[in-house]
Amino acid sequence: MIFFETYGDRLITAFQVHLFYVLTSVTIGFAIALVLGILLSRVPQYAKVIMPLLSVFQTIPGIVFIGILFLYLGMIPATVISALAVYAIFPILKNTYTGLLDIKKEYIEAAKGCGMSPFQTLLEVELPLASPSIIAGLRMSTIYTVSWAVLAAMIGLGGLGEFIYIGIASNNDQLILAGAIPSAIMAIGLSLLIDVLRRVVVPKGIRSVK
């Protein structure tokens, strides 16, 4: 209890900052990933080369991106957000792409046969059918981003990582937990929220057919 009297306010601010980083970067990442995923699914012959290259970049630890961007952009939130957004892209992109490619040919043919334009086919048939996969990618990205956002504190930009870094430096397990538990709660909370979103977005007719 004493702990909360001392750190309560800072913890709430840190939580908000952390959430802000996560939401902004996941939103940006999602938008980019969706567009890229759709574009790549139109040219699978190139995507076959591009996707593995992207997955290699995915192996670069987040800390490196933040570190390098920090050198060039300095200590501003944009550094953190753009680094996190880059990380949020890949799982969503991959799931969008495979989700779109996995759609059975017959639906596309039926859509064409019904006189749907390519854009209408995408909007009304392909994206709804790929939505379970896309949302699963979003969920994964969000959970990762909550975890990576801890790194903001490494360059002095706050968030729940602050508690964790200070805690590690001072060997104070209370402080580490004060950073870790809210961050885990945030990850779980957001993934529950996405489960709700899933129920709204994924059309009823395909919910049982995973």
């Binding site: 729940l160 964790i164 104070n172």
Partner: peptide, 18 residues
């Protein structure tokens, strides 16, 4: 899955302390 939601850094920090 819950284990996975704990930031890696925090998890390591806690284990070191323990």
């Amino acid at each position: 899955e819950i284990l996975q939601t704990i930031p890696a850094l925090a998890l390591l920090g806690l284990i070191i302390i323990a």
